[in-house]
Amino acid sequence: MCGRFAITLPNDAMAQLFSARPANTLPSVPNFNVCPTNKVHVVRGGEAGRTLDPLRWGFLPHWYKTETAGPLLINARAETLAEKPAFRAACRERRCLIVATGFYEWTKSEQGTRLPWYIHRKDGAPITFAGVWQDWGAEEVRQGTCAIVTTSANRRLSAIHHRMPLILEPDDWPLWLGEAGKGAARLMQPGAEGVLDYHRVDPAVNSNRASGSDLIVPIPA
């Protein structure tokens, strides 16, 4: 799964990387502790080209009457994405890319203490999560919402967690966004083998109020 992440790439650099037209209301960067319900940077495709938009991290199905009417859907399992009522239409019609620099996962010590790890690309490039999105709410409060698609962990990450975000390489972006026709389902499997690395970080990140670049600095495991 993915419950917290970091984004440090400047907004204009993100727009250039994805050849996307940026919205004027993008979240401020850097943010080393992006939490559920925060606005995140999302790339969407369309007839007029790609856009880079701020969407709420926490998918809201159309039948939710309020933002808290049901579970907080920050992740969507690839294995059931096309079947779950909340996600099946979005799986077909509203796939997106969610941009990150790295993400956090937790293990537990023998004493039950939560130990955070920071996971990032070995080459230092941004990470691109596969996502799905949904507009939600009445016109006056309408907002875009999204969830990160997850798969079973690859061999490297399985040492710290059994799930991981579905990570897409640049050659996969057009297919996931629907720009290269059908067949996105073949991308929904564990990947990024040999691409990611991780290290222990300070437990300060256990708090959703923590901030600052110190959150991703390595500490002894």
Rank of each mutant, 00 (worst) to 15 (best):
M1K: 09
R4M: 03
A6Q: 00
N11A: 14
L17C: 10
F18R: 11
A20V: 03
A20S: 08
P22L: 02
N24I: 01
P27H: 07
P27Q: 04
V29A: 10
P30G: 02
N31D: 13
F32Q: 01
V34E: 02
C35F: 11
K39S: 13
V42I: 11
G49I: 08
D53K: 00
L55F: 11
G58L: 08
P61Y: 04
W63R: 05
W63F: 11
K65T: 12
T68A: 15
T68F: 15
L72P: 01
N75M: 05
N75S: 10
A76K: 07
R77E: 04
R77T: 05
R77Y: 07
T80F: 01
L81S: 01
P85Q: 06
F87Q: 02
R88T: 10
R94A: 06
R95L: 08
V99M: 02
T101M: 02
G102H: 02
G102N: 01
F103A: 06
F103I: 09
Y104T: 05
E105W: 08
E105C: 09
E105R: 10
T107K: 10
T107M: 09
T107E: 10
K108T: 15
K108A: 13
S109E: 11
E110C: 03
Q111W: 05
T113V: 15
L115Y: 13
I119V: 08
I119H: 03
H120S: 06
R121A: 10
K122A: 06
K122C: 04
T128D: 00
A130V: 05
W133H: 09
W133E: 04
W136P: 00
G137S: 11
A138F: 12
E139K: 15
E140C: 12
E140W: 13
R142D: 05
Q143H: 10
Q143Y: 02
T145G: 01
A147G: 10
A147Y: 11
S152N: 07
R156S: 07
L157D: 13
R163P: 01
M164R: 05
M164Q: 14
M164C: 00
M164F: 09
P165Y: 12
I167T: 05
I167M: 12
L168Y: 11
L168N: 08
E169P: 09
E169M: 15
W176N: 03
G178H: 05
A180I: 03
M188D: 12
M188I: 06
Q189E: 13
P190W: 02
A192Q: 01
E193Q: 09
G194V: 07
G194N: 06
L196Y: 12
Y198V: 07
Y198F: 11
Y198Q: 00
V201P: 00
D202Q: 14
D202I: 06
A204Y: 08
S207N: 12
S207L: 14
R209E: 03
R209C: 04
A210Y: 01
I216Y: 00
V217C: 14
V217T: 13
P218W: 08
I219V: 15
I219Q: 11
